[in-house]
């Protein structure tokens, strides 16, 4: 009975795939469909229904802007617009052209008292203003580039 809840659960299978790969690649979904003998349409139906699932690979760092009530009232809509412009993300995309950042809207992180809240990677920025976001993102960008450069220089082939 508990097995019934565990094993058959499509949502949890998808969560596992996404956890491993960062998104839901088409091939994995086709494989899942074969393994579980459920139609691909059903799997896509579920994958597109929930916000958590991504069908495109994400940027290196995900920036999530809280669109909850408290954050909205304290100005996160403007922060979002600012980030779009600052990161140069095109209207029909969610990832910046350099593939470093993806921008998404999130629902309340439950830290409303720090509103407005923006999450850069795993780091929560409370009481966010465009100026601070700008600083934080530049810092993150530098550290990624530095890391990449280090890997490029030290590793040879990648």
């Amino acid at each position: 009975m508990s097995g019934k809840i565990c094993s058959g659960n499509l949502i949890e299978s998808l969560q596992r795939i996404q956890e491993k790969q960062g998104f839901l690649p088409r091939d994995s979904l086709i494989k899942l469909s074969r393994d579980t003998r459920s139609p691909l349409s059903r799997i896509f139906g579920v994958a597109t229904f929930y916000h958590q699932f991504r069908l495109e690979p994400p940027g290196k760092v995900t920036i999530a802007v809280c669109m909850g009530t408290a954050c909205h009232l304290r100005g996160n809509a403007e922060n979002y617009e600012f980030l779009r412009r600052f990161l140069g993300i095109r209207p029909d995309r969610s990832t910046s052209d350099d593939g470093l950042f993806s921008l998404e809207k999130a629902r309340c992180f439950g830290c409303c008292s720090l509103a407005p809240v923006v999450k850069i990677g795993d780091m929560l920025v409370g009481k966010a203003t465009p100026r601070e976001l700008q600083k934080a993102i530049s810092r993150v960008r530098e550290s990624i580039l530095r890391e990449e450069a280090a890997r490029g220089a030290g590793g040879g082939k990648t």
Binding site: S2, I5, N9, I11, E12, L14, Q15, Y50, H51, Q52
Partner: peptide
Amino acid sequence: DVRVMRSAGAF
């Protein structure tokens, strides 16, 4: 017995 299930996000 009890198990915890995580939602995939939908209000």
